[in-house]
Design a protein around this nucleic acid. Structure first.
Lengths: 421, 421, 421
DNA sequence: ATCGTTCTAGAATATTCGTGT
DNA sequence: GACACGAATATTCTAGAACGA
């Protein structure tokens, strides 16, 4: 062929470009194969070869087949048929106008509307004309070609797929939101509940401690009154006042309060403080977020998952709104606890269990210590250990536990006072 | 120009614009057949016009342009170009092969691979052949045509109007989310507030209990000290242990624990402890959510609604929120009670009122108690008020309220205690 | 057989298949115009071909068939019949007035009522006139045409851009939701944390108060015991009144109570009361909302800002789930506090400061009050009983449980003490 | 990994028909 | 019966996807 690319396009078309058209890539139903050659076109920098080829095609094509529009802003294929069979093969490995158009489309070209306003304007000569436009594809403006980017998503800016993309994004966002909200709900639910339980537990403990202290003091008083003749009481008292010796448990109320949890090695062995520690552990656990209670076999649920949490994102409103009930339950559980229900472990997770155990250990030690101080102390000790125990938090599900607890308590404490709670 | 499409279109457009109007798309009832008369394929009813047209096209088309395959399973367009320009317009309102193909596609036809397996098999004669296949489109089998269904979504199952449906779904989801969030916000708000109130109430009670205990003990001490000479103290003690006489208050701490709050008329006057009450009011205000107190004139708002809480995007709360209110009231009642705060009536329900009374009763007692104690008592009062002091809970927005409350408190109470805040 | 389905296909092809190919529907890029000829309306770009055609129809149509109304706001088809048969085909691929009307409907045109108000107004000449109106379709206002949007769902103005508008709305809504959720998360997080801190702080204070009281009483006891012979106790007392020595813990209950926290340098070393102080500090911060902690340098972070709060709406799940840590932090912070770590004030607001001061004053007073003892016991009893009373919190649902619990407890405990509840 | 080729599906407009008010 | 609109099909252009080079 006479490919006379005067300028930069030299060599785009090989002289013997005689390959059996209809080869190349492309989707084909199962089957096929073809032979194509390569193109000797060295990479003329960043301009896609397709654009360079197309540009040259238009420039060198017979004007009765294809050409620039008069204003040079677009190009017109006047005879698509001949263009496909005669021109295209000179530059590409095929002879299909549709494939050519597809490529134009990839590069953002748009087919211009050729329809006349009035049918009477119909011109058979121009009827089959096909006009393509691309902002950066103009006669004499090879420099603009590099601005044209191939795009799988359609070349031009904002082609209209925006909508689709937006919709996709929205869909994802909404789904994410649903998930987020659902989780938030669950999480807050859980956290509220835990916080409340935690607080109640602490309060309960405090009350116990106070009560014990009271009784303690009363006894002391009585004792002091009764033992005016002897200094025994004095010893006792002094002991109480002393800062707790390392390894020993102070009966000082403050100590009780101390969140030893963190001050783990504050002088006590892990064992002795385990109770408290575990307690804290329990906290942590409880404060965790994901309500993974689902399975939670073995151990039993300390805090049975709130029934309401089951809600589904799609329409949990009704369910979620019943929350008050859950709150109620927890509160109820609490009060119940404050009534001395608690020391059992309703499904404490292992650590909780551990804490229970530790707590016991602690209790014992504490108890023995108390032994030094007099009977009343015992009760106090029990109370304290109890105190640390966060278990108090049981819900309605606790009936059984409750019973158990009571029995435990009865067994564990000798004085009526301790049963106080 | 001369509208002389040289070739195929010759005469298509006559001077008299004689197009067979009434072509083009359009709805056809399922079961049209239109003008068609009898057919050997009796089931002419439900067959789409496109299929009938196409079938006839193949049957009546010159075999050098298009025809059935030898086995009659498919049809081949041997000369797409001529087919498009000469045949298609006879049946359809266009002359484009691509449009014809699109329709075939709608009806589930598949283009068959025309490429030769071996290059050597390449036959220029068949190179441009286009073959389409449809299971129910076979030579002499008009009866199968009715099985072919057009699909908006394309030949395959399920593609189509997803967009629209998706949009609908999204819309619904978003609305639901909005509602959900709004409710969540309200609920959490409410629950937080309640939790806090609950806790504060409990703490307050505890403090009071403690304080009482303290004083109690002091008395005991005093008594014991004073009664060294006699067993009076014993009497005293026993008295403590006794169940509280009606109308009297037991000094037993355990008893204290008992939920008297609700035991409405326990006998005191109103008024003196307003300080504490207001303090609690502050709390509520800070944690409160829905300002449902709207009406609530007379009595003054102990818990002014939070300005920020107005949010509420849509307005779903009505039903769900009602619950909270009731709860609120009860809680409010509590704090109120426990603090003896309440003489105000923010639409307090009867029980609230009752509680108010109780609170007042307490107040009086406390007050008188303080009175008896002299200076120190003042401090105590202060301490309590302080304790109750919710200030910590107030947001930046509360400054004003706080001030107001304080002033009120200052005005209402003479002792330093009021300055508690 | 002759594949001449004689029947059913009859008429598929009209004898005068003369239609102007290349008409019909189809997608047209916004911005066509192409080969179109002159239209006096230059801005031919984004205007739908239908509108352009229609506009030209009206302009160039014989006035006895169709024309603009005198005011140019609408157009009138005076002779629908001729319009359909003579005019429409010149521009469209059909000759049906109904189809034309359908298109007008798609573009939001409305047919104006042609019926006379009074029968006598009936004018045979105008009876068949059909008038259409579109806000943006006026004589000489081609520029308005581009405002007219086709609607898939039919003519209504609102309908057309519904899809697009909906999408926009949805987008906005979703964004709003994201923001809202994100903020909610943060806020609730913050509030939970603050509430917890607040509560813990209060409890700590209470415990301290109690402890102090205890020690106090013990001292009293000791004193009373020791000073049976003399007024040594006086000495003791005076001691108590003294401001606490640095590093020592005041045994004044008031002091304990006092939120000294804010009164940082009240004479104590960081160690002793700091805990409370910081704790109070935490309070304030805590109930605020927006986590403005960001800067907060200087003073050291008692409660380091929650790292997790940074999450972005777009994908906070992972972040939000890390909550456990935050909780941990808060707890840790608390314990820290209780250990007297903190007494610093991270931006305490004035009121806090104020309260602190007041608190101190109160402390002293309270202390002295306590010193006196007295018969205040009654009040104490009431207070205690009040305190324990959880009943307020229970709803109707609790009745049963409560009863059950009570009975259980009653059965289990013999002494008055146990009746603690 | 990018680009080319081909086939299929999506999307928007056009045209027609039917229906409910 | 008129009219607005839903619905189905038609036509055109653009984008997606698969496969190969």
């Amino acid at each position: 062929m006479e490919t006379q690319p005067k300028v930069d396009f030299t060599g785009l078309i090989g002289p013997a470009k005689r390959r059996r058209l209809r080869s190349g890539g492309g989707r084909r139903c199962p089957g096929t194969a073809a032979t194509s050659k390569g193109s000797n076109c060295k990479g003329a920098t960043t301009i896609p070869i397709f654009l360079k080829k197309t540009y040259k095609m238009i420039e060198s094509c017979p004007t009765d087949i294809a050409s620039w529009t008069p204003d040079g802003e677009m190009f017109v294929v006047k005879d698509p048929e001949r263009f496909a069979t005669e021109i295209i093969p000179q530059y590409f490995d095929h002879n299909k106008f549709s494939s050519f158009a597809r490529q134009l489309n990839f590069y953002g070209f748009r087919k211009m509307q050729s329809k006349p306003i009035r049918n009477s304007d119909f011109d058979a000569n121009t009827a089959k004309h096909v006009t393509f436009f691309n902002e950066n594809f103009k006669r004499g403006r090879c420099d603009l070609l590099k601005k044209i980017q191939r795009s799988t998503r359609g070349g031009g800016p904002g082609t209209g797929s925006d909508q689709v993309k937006d919709l996709q994004d929205l869909r994802e966002k909404v789904n994410l939101l649903e998930t987020t909200i659902s989780e938030m709900q669950t999480q807050h639910e859980e956290r509220m509940r835990r916080l409340e339980l935690d607080m109640l537990g602490r309060m309960e403990q405090m009350m116990m401690a106070i009560q014990q202290q009271q009784q303690n003091q009363q006894q002391l008083q009585l004792r002091s009154q009764n033992s005016l003749t002897g200094p025994a009481s004095v010893t006792s008292d002094s002991n109480l006042m002393k800062p707790p010796a390392p390894g020993s448990v102070s009966n000082d109320i403050t100590n009780t309060f101390d969140p030893l949890p963190f001050g783990v090695g504050r002088g006590q062995s892990i064992g002795s403080l385990g109770g408290l520690a575990s307690l804290m552990g329990g906290h942590q656990a409880s404060l965790g977020f994901k309500p993974n209670f689902s399975g939670a076999p073995g151990g039993g649920p300390t805090l049975p998952p709130h029934p309401k949490m089951k809600q589904l994102p799609t329409q949990n409103l009704p369910g979620s709104l019943t929350l008050p009930n859950s709150r109620l339950d927890s509160l109820r559980g609490i009060s119940t606890l404050s009534r001395g229900i608690s020391n059992l472990s309703r499904g404490l997770s292992t650590e909780s269990q551990g804490s229970a155990i530790l707590g016991n250990a602690f209790e014992d030690k504490f108890f023995s210590m108390l032994m030094n101080g007099g009977d009343a102390n015992k009760a106090a000790a029990a109370s304290l250990s109890n105190f640390m125990n966060p278990t108090p938090i049981q819900d309605q599900l606790n009936a059984a536990n409750l019973a158990r607890n009571n029995s435990l308590m009865n067994g564990g404490t000798a004085t009526a006072a301790t049963t106080g709670i």
